[in-house]
Simulated assay, not measured.
Amino acid sequence: MANDNISLQESLPAPSVSESKTETELIIKDPNILKQALLEKVKSLMNVRGEIALPCVPAMLDEYLQLVQNLLKTLGQNLNEENFNNLKELITKGLTEGYKLSPHARLLVSFLPAEEAKGLASGVTINTKVLVESVADKYQQWPQIRQEPLFGSHPDAKVMKIAAEIGEPKTTTILDIGAGTGRNTIPLAKLGYPVDAIELTPAFIEKLNTEINNQNLPVKVIQGDILDPLLRMKVARYKLAIASEVLSHFRYTEQVRLFLAKMCDTLRSGGLLLFSAFFAIDDYEPDNFVKEMSEVSWSYIITRKELQAAMEDLPLELISDESVIEYEQKHLPPEAWPPTTWYVNWAMGRDLFPISKNPPMELRWILLKRI
């Protein structure tokens, strides 16, 4: 969106040239008057330029307004009712637009003097701008800022177990959604399974293609988003589809339903769908604030009721539902656990709820069968 701005300006009374000698004497006798004048002079010599990047979480509007108000107060700027309403409208608009575009959007709130030559004595102009980043944009930076292996050195134990049970590798094509750099794709292909790997991030695709070509593996790489209606897959092609650490990037129950419906189309009768997702535990019902924050934290959380609603009238049967942490820790070799330094806290839900106790959510393996 284009920059939006408001100016918070204070107007000083016009100087008088007709004050009497008596009034001047009173000013001299009251040092507070002169001190206040000097403080105004200091204000005119002060300058400020700064920027705050706020996650576009509409439920945080009140907290963000308080944050900006406190900052302005520190800068000697007090909001009147009109100023406050203008500021609220500006931030509300930015948060709403940013959230609609991406859960990874940021609202940039910048501050500068209303008039450069007069410094803070002229008031402050506030500018807002929405910076939009997609999941692919965020992941594109990972090879530069994170240590290898990005997602772990071994494939998911659950993925390999299910794959071993579905049939002869050479005649069993597998769909790997959100393949990343190939943590599951490469080991499956080495066993002889033809794999179609869907991935969004160009940097990951480059790494994946390099490995595929070096080892001459039976993998077809498809760049795209599984939720994109234009991404079509062959009907009844796969015996197994996997989506490890993918649904954590979803945003709505409707997206879960779309995902499941597309899997029903592309899986053979009797085929299996294995995916991991964050589920609310027990009777915990996430409110709107939690939902919005879960999207920002790459930890999209759903309830069992929402999964059931997403599966309604689809030819799917629930086969198993188990803790990812418990299963992977038990079945991965010792040197492979944990897969990364961040994995355990993330899988427990602590990226969303940074608390020492167990958050009311956890990453679960869900196995469904196409009836």
Rank of each mutant, 00 (worst) to 15 (best):
E148D: 14
D176L: 07
G180S: 08
I281A: 00
R146N: 10
L272E: 04
E206S: 14
T181P: 06
T173C: 06
R257T: 11
S269M: 07
T92K: 05
S153Q: 14
P194Q: 15
V57G: 04
N345E: 15
L191V: 09
L34M: 09
L90S: 05
W365Y: 15
K43G: 13
N213H: 11
F151G: 02
M348A: 08
D282I: 11
K21E: 14
L72W: 13
A280I: 09
F111Y: 12
I366T: 09
L267T: 00
E335V: 07
F151D: 03
N358C: 06
E82R: 12
L131S: 14
E23H: 02
F278R: 00
I174K: 03
E25A: 07
A197D: 01
A236Q: 14
A59E: 15
L38N: 12
T340M: 10
P202Y: 01
A347Y: 05
N86L: 08
S244Y: 01
A179D: 09
L26M: 11
T96L: 12
K93R: 14
R268I: 12
I319Y: 06
L175H: 07
M46C: 12
P55S: 13
M160A: 08
Y99K: 11
L307F: 12
R106H: 09
I145Q: 08
P31W: 01
L39W: 05
P339N: 00
N5G: 06
I126K: 03
E335Q: 14
Q36W: 02
K220G: 02
G224R: 05
Q329P: 03
R268S: 11
P58G: 06
S102R: 07
K170P: 01
S11M: 13
L273D: 04
L61V: 13
N3R: 00
G192A: 08
S20P: 00
S134Y: 02
Q144N: 12
V296K: 09
V124A: 08
S323I: 10
L314E: 02
P286R: 03
G178E: 02
S299Y: 02
W298K: 08
L240N: 01
K158G: 01
S299H: 06
L120Y: 04
